[in-house]
Simulated scan of single mutants.
Amino acid sequence: MIKRAPSMFVVRHALSSPSARCRSLRTHTSPVRYIQSSSRPRLPPLAFAFDIDGVLLRGPHTIPAARRALDMLNGVNPMGVTIPFILLTNGGGLGEEARRHKLSSQLGVEIHSNQIVQAHTILKSVVHKYADKPVLVLGGRNDEIRKVAEDYGFKHAYTTLDVLAWKPEVWPFHNLTPEERASVKPADFSGIPISAIFVFHDPRNWSLDIQVILDVIRSRGIVGGPYLDPSPTSNQQSLPPVELVLCNPDLLWKSDFPQPRLGQGAFREAFQAVYQAVVGARYPCVQYGKPTKATYEFAESVLRDRLEEFSGDRVDEMPRVYMIADNPESDIAGANAAGWPSVLVKTGVYDPSRGPPTHTPSYIAEDVEEAVRWAIEREMRK
């Protein structure tokens, strides 16, 4: 059952505006038992993981409640302490340093790169397997994702635009624009064995990308090579299959358009439908992103590092981590499986008029400000 707690903020009901509520928090804040006199700050009993789209931002616009919520994390709360947090998103397309600059500007607070876990950030933990091997990277515009991949340590990253520039007949229904042509890396793919395909971010040209993925997978890495689909009579089954890794399973996501938009999960389903129609089975792949266990474990390790930096000491026991999010299928399901309390907000994908959420959160809030307040009150009662 979804719990709704009575308020412990003394003046909450006496104030009508969000700004007045924030002023009251500053007035009534007292540095209680969580502050100590040593130079090392004591960790509060909770930390947060926030989704971004639909929680803090809607498209390029900041949700007003987000700034008030971040004020609370920065000390405007009854505990009088700074509360650590990370941003855990299925979005991506930029490096973490570039993302932090953009988010800091949008949210009006200083965000650090080690607070950001994007859908593809987890690939930093597996790059050593493919650092020296040719890989195909998908998503974003032009060569933006190649730059992210190279920054992670992939030394030989190629895009589907590189393949199209090599042989336009690979997909004769798209002519490279001057901007796209300027971004390509010249290569002869007849002699480049692609060992893995990484879908970092939402692809921009589904038809081209599906065709090139099919070519790479079916030829075991050589674009234009003979197809080596699994067969009892094939004499080349010793060739390893090409690993397909996707970073975001979200079927839908919330932009500033009135209705949710198709995400990378929809691209995965489109590819698998085509592959099954052609070959007769779905292709095995590695899936990262919320709600996968691997992503939540990775996010917890990032948060632990953040907490150790915050406290200046080793963190043996994690505080309770609250996931604030808008998507029951990815955020709430993953948080529940990880044992994190979860708060579902109504400012994104979740539409209460369509019935109860598919995965039950610990609490449902109007927005991120209410979500943060509820979590703090809950911990204070304990």
Rank of each mutant, 00 (worst) to 15 (best):
K3Y: 10
R4H: 13
P6W: 06
S7W: 08
V10M: 08
S16T: 13
S17V: 11
H28K: 07
T29C: 15
S39Q: 04
R40Q: 10
R42G: 08
P45M: 05
A47H: 05
A49M: 14
F50V: 04
V55H: 03
L56T: 03
L56E: 02
G59P: 02
H61T: 08
L70C: 03
V76K: 08
M79N: 03
V81E: 03
I83R: 01
I83G: 00
P84C: 09
I86A: 00
L88M: 09
L88G: 02
L88N: 01
R100T: 13
V109R: 09
E110D: 12
N114A: 04
L123R: 09
V127L: 06
H128N: 09
H128K: 09
P134K: 09
L138Q: 04
G140E: 12
N142G: 00
E144K: 13
E144L: 15
D151Q: 15
D151E: 15
Y152T: 06
K155L: 14
H156K: 15
H156I: 06
A157L: 11
T160S: 12
V163A: 12
V170Q: 01
V170H: 01
F173S: 11
T177K: 12
E180I: 02
A187T: 07
D188I: 07
S190D: 07
G191T: 13
I192A: 04
P193T: 10
I194P: 01
S195H: 15
A196R: 03
V199H: 09
F200S: 08
D202V: 14
N205H: 15
W206K: 02
V216G: 09
S219F: 13
I222T: 12
L228P: 00
D229F: 10
D229R: 12
P230R: 11
P232V: 11
Q236N: 14
S238Q: 15
L239R: 08
L246Q: 11
L246A: 15
D256M: 13
P258R: 12
Q259H: 11
G263D: 02
Q264R: 01
F271C: 01
Q272I: 10
Q272V: 11
Q276K: 15
V278L: 14
A281V: 10
A281P: 01
R282D: 10
P284M: 10
Q287A: 09
G289A: 09
K290A: 11
K290Y: 12
P291S: 07
P291H: 05
P291T: 05
A294Q: 14
E300A: 12
V302F: 08
D305G: 07
R306V: 08
E308P: 06
G312W: 07
E317S: 13
E317G: 00
R320T: 13
G334E: 11
A335M: 10
A337I: 07
S342N: 05
S342P: 02
V343L: 13
G348V: 13
V349A: 12
Y350Q: 06
P356H: 13
H359W: 06
Y363C: 12
V368M: 05
V372E: 04
V372N: 01
R373F: 06
A375Q: 00
R378I: 00
M380E: 11
M380H: 03
R381Q: 10
